[in-house]
Design a protein around this nucleic acid. Structure first.
Length: 284
DNA sequence: GCGGCGG
């Protein structure tokens, strides 16, 4: 969404969008785009006002840290919030609370060696920091939804079993803020927020199963550093073998299957629905 | 229909 400047190198214009969300806080629009390219995944967060746009790029593993930090700013009393720094890969993100006659705000700025520093400013909102809370909720949704995508080193799992607790054990750490008061342990406490129902989940069609004769075939939507794919696994007993179908080839695959359905129609219709049926994906 | 930031 929100059309990328178009094709110029390094702008991420060709990156695959996994998930997009928008949030309006007061008169600002925030765009959250979970994206992927051959180097990995990242969350692009853009702040757009009528005249300006600025963007920060959060590495995938940093999303849960952002979630923790926003929880910290939402849940702390205003007199005891401190600035925070978050180091991720080669970037440092600075979190600072400010206040002016428009109200309180959280300034999140990204400093990296290569690019200029870029900053987004999130209004706290009028009451109960609801601007920050809404921002936090979006981060939580993205953090949840991103579990639906299979990661590269999850070779032989049924997606819905293993996709829990992925991004909690990131290798990043906090640097204590300017005032160096609270540390990471403060921030990992408040996990018990009431989240809005993650609406995407379950609608993405990941992890479907069909049964044919004695065999089961699992269809799992996945993703690795090469891009998106559909994994079709044949499971019989404890054996599994899979084919990995890049999404770019899915239409051809579909048409090819359709071709064979067409030329074998007589025989298929002869046993229509008898022992080929779709079933619901395994729970949890 | 706001406005912060940093240069």
């Amino acid at each position: 969404m929100e059309g990328n400047s178009g094709g110029t190198g390094g702008g991420g214009g060709n990156d695959v969008e996994l998930l997009c969300k928008t949030l309006q806080v007061e008169h600002k629009l925030f765009y959250f785009d979970l994206k992927e390219n051959p180097r990995g995944r990242y969350l692009k967060i853009s702040e757009k006002t009528s005249a300006t746009r600025s963007t920060i790029i959060v590495p995938f593993d940093g999303i849960s840290w952002f979630l923790d930090l926003f929880n910290y700013y939402v849940n702390s009393d205003k007199q005891d919030v401190f600035s925070k720094e978050l180091q991720l890969d080669s970037k440092v993100f600075y979190f600072d609370v400010g206040e002016n006659r428009r109200g309180r705000f959280l300034k999140v700025s990204e400093a990296s060696v290569s690019r200029n520093r870029s900053t987004i400013i999130v209004p706290a909102g009028s009451a109960r920091d609801e601007g920050w809370a809404a921002f936090r909720n979006i981060l939580a949704e993205i953090n949840e939804a991103s579990r639906l995508f299979i990661l590269p080193n999850q070779q032989n799992s049924e997606a819905s079993e293993r996709l829990v607790g992925l991004s909690d054990d990131v290798g990043a750490g906090f640097i204590s803020g300017h005032s160096s008061q609270p540390t990471a342990s403060d921030l990992t406490v408040d996990r018990t927020i009431d989240l809005p129902p993650p609406d995407e989940i379950g609608n993405l069609g990941v992890s479907k199963v069909i049964r044919a004769d004695q065999k089961r075939f699992f269809f799992d939507l996945g993703s690795n550093n090469r891009g998106h794919f559909l994994r079709i696994s044949e499971v019989a007993g404890s054996d599994r073998s899979s084919i990995i179908l890049p999404l770019s080839g899915l239409k051809q695959f579909y048409e090819m299957v359709g071709h064979f359905v067409e030329i074998t129609k007589d025989r298929i219709e002869g046993m229509a629905g008898a022992n080929v049926r779709t079933v619901d994906p395994p729970q949890r």
